[in-house]
Design a protein around this nucleic acid. Structure first.
Lengths: 219, 219
DNA sequence: TTATTTTGTTTTACTTCTCTAACTTTATAC
DNA sequence: GTATAAAGTTAGAGAAGTAAAACAAAATAA
């Protein structure tokens, strides 16, 4: 069984791989706020357990087994977030830190029960997919709002950044998942967008914000 | 802030103090399955943090602050057990190990929310009192069923042993908290009791079992 | 009350996870 | 295409938590 610390390395490596493709020791070091020599030695340890492919000076890669174990931790994290929001009344901006701890609870039954009470959800409160019990993840095809053009009608389905500040920013503008959004115009100078949704007829969103909003085109 | 390991020592010391009054290094060592030298050094560490009164070769005692911090961990444990039973559909025999892990989650909000969703319960699924947010515990006056005599009418309010085996034993006999029990007779030879409750007209319970059942006399 | 057993402590050492400092390899810039 | 910078590794060390071995104190039993 992996230690809590090992689980955190696996999860970070998994997430970084998805976010940026190639992951270096330095990336993992910064993500975990742990110095590079420590990361190097942990990578060797995890390589010894068959969870990471490690070669000196090469990018880091999870093995198939490593991917599964990482996905199962992320499964527990996302089920927890969903449970906190749906069953306990938390806001989507409040759940990250709690889930970060509960993801390390060892009890299949506990998470199976959550899953069941939630009706086997496919995604978490931020729109990220929940891996299945075997560690398989299926990603929906999303588009960044920032890649849309004037006139596009889309539905907000996920957010990339899940920091409390960003989510509070979205709360303040009544931006939530499932919302239908019309792109009114795109400002060429700073790529900010004017959008229309719900009762908001002309809300301006910076490019930085639009890059973090994932949408699907409205059929 | 106390580490998870320190929290476990505090909790064990608190529980042992209630169960048996005087707690020696050896008792704590056995309870935690940790060798005595390790316990000794942890006691010195906790004494340094002002949580334990430690003197060589003397019984171990929590300081007032130590009692409060221990009670707050136990509060989290018992709230969790209650939540698992009441809100997630677990049986009272299934919740101990999960609560043992969740009690170490650091989030006042999480436990405040549990408390609220449960309607501020006074005791856990095994009848043990839940300490308040300040670490104060109020024990009800219980009597052991084994101290009752033939003809007594009592209500089952708590169980002492919370092991899975014991609770399954009680489940099999439909013994649950709140039940009204009539002591039909006491066997002088082995102190076993014949009792009557619900639809059971003549159930025999060994002294070992009766000692672990806490009751109040029916007014 | 003295001998023996039990309990508790001290010392040393191991494991896990972390760091700093020094060195090496790879990438970047001129 | 070397010089410099950035990234990565090695080596040594420290904190937290654990145990084994050796010793000391206290309790118990003869």
């Amino acid at each position: 069984m992996n230690s809590l610390v090992e689980e955190n390395y696996l999860k970070a490596l998994f997430n970084l791989s998805i976010e940026s493709g190639q992951v270096n020791v330095n990336d993992l070091s910064q993500r975990l706020d742990i110095k590079m020599p420590t990361v190097t030695s942990m990578m060797k340890k995890l390589a010894g357990k068959g969870l990471v492919h490690y070669e000196s000076y090469k990018p880091l890669r999870l093995t198939e087994q490593g991917k599964i174990e990482a996905a199962l931790i992320i499964r527990k994290h996302r089920l927890t977030e969903m449970f906190l929001v749906e069953k306990m009344g938390f806001g989507w901006e409040q759940v990250h830190d709690i889930a970060e701890q509960i993801e390390h609870i060892h009890s299949d039954l506990f998470f199976a029960k959550m899953d069941e009470l939630l009706g086997f959800p496919k995604s978490d409160p931020h729109g990220s997919p929940i891996p299945d019990r075997n560690g398989n993840v299926t990603w929906k095809e999303f588009k960044k709002l920032s890649d849309c053009k004037a006139g596009d009608r889309v539905r907000l389905e996920a957010v990339i950044n899940t920091s409390e500040e960003f989510l509070k920013f979205l709360n303040n503008r009544a931006l939530s998942l499932g919302l239908e959004v019309l792109v009114v115009s795109v400002e060429p100078f700073d790529r900010s967008m004017v959008v229309k949704y719900a009762k908001r007829t002309a809300e301006t969103l910076s490019h930085t914000v639009c890059e973090r909003l994932l949408v699907v085109e409205k059929a």
